[in-house]
Amino acid sequence: MRLKRRPHAVSDRAWWASQDFWRKCAIFVTAFMAVVLIVLTFHTMDAITSGSGRVPAYAVINYRIDYEFDAGRNMYAPVIGEEAPLFGTLHTEDEARALVDLGKLTVQAKNCMNCHTLLGNGAYYAPDLTKAWLDPGWGNEQSRELLLTMFLTDPVANARTFGTRRRMPDLGITDEEARGVIAFLKWLSAVDTNGFPHGFETLPQGGS
């Protein structure tokens, strides 16, 4: 009669093969990654908060903004210059925030990202708006605010195709909303985007 071999008892298994070991590993890894996620969340919130190192305070719309190559970082970066109030009016931080918020809400309400991109996100039918405030298509620094306002409020009569045959439809943007959108675009141009877009040519600054 052949004797059946007795299976190994659970206690005879290697420690790394036990269910208890892998259960503890799963708990440890889950807890560790939860902590990492919390830390990264707070770090990200700090990095994208207005007034942080990369995202300027809203009152930056009171200053001249350019986009130049930073040899130390080997990338393009926004440069905040001398005082150049938007629409000729100095805005407090709260006033600037209200104006920028109006512009951001208008961009969202008018579904601008159905055609445009912001910070690389959105559609690619029309130009990226990340540095639209600095686009040389607006001629020069003196005419920019007027041309932007005219274009936004009546894009049919003041069509600007920027080298394409694509035209923006009339979205019914009011003068007040246009001022908000322009403030939003100026503020957005001052956000440090780690060199995006690369090699963007800006319009002449300081009346040059």
Rank of each mutant, 00 (worst) to 15 (best):
R6T: 13
P7E: 05
P7V: 07
A9K: 12
V10G: 15
R13L: 14
W16M: 10
Q19A: 15
D20H: 14
W22C: 13
R23Q: 14
I27F: 15
F28C: 11
V29R: 13
V29E: 09
M33A: 11
A34T: 13
I38L: 15
T41L: 08
T41N: 11
F42G: 14
H43M: 13
D46E: 11
A47Y: 10
S50E: 05
S52C: 00
S52P: 04
G53S: 05
Y58E: 00
Y58K: 05
Y63Q: 12
I65N: 03
D70N: 06
A71Q: 11
A71G: 10
G72M: 08
M75V: 10
Y76R: 08
P78I: 03
V79W: 08
G81R: 05
E83W: 05
L90S: 14
A96M: 03
A96S: 07
R97S: 10
A98Y: 03
L99N: 09
L99V: 04
L105V: 01
Q108D: 08
C115W: 08
G120K: 09
G120Q: 00
G122T: 03
D128Q: 04
L129K: 03
T130G: 11
T130W: 08
K131R: 07
A132D: 08
L134F: 05
L134I: 00
P136H: 06
G139D: 04
N140L: 01
S143N: 12
E145N: 05
L147R: 14
L152N: 10
L152V: 04
R160Y: 02
R160H: 09
F162L: 05
R166G: 13
R167I: 01
D170E: 01
D170K: 01
D170P: 09
L171I: 02
L171D: 02
G172P: 02
G172V: 03
G180C: 02
V181E: 05
I182T: 00
K186E: 00
V191N: 00
D192N: 11
F196V: 11
F196S: 14
H198Y: 15
L203C: 02
S208V: 15
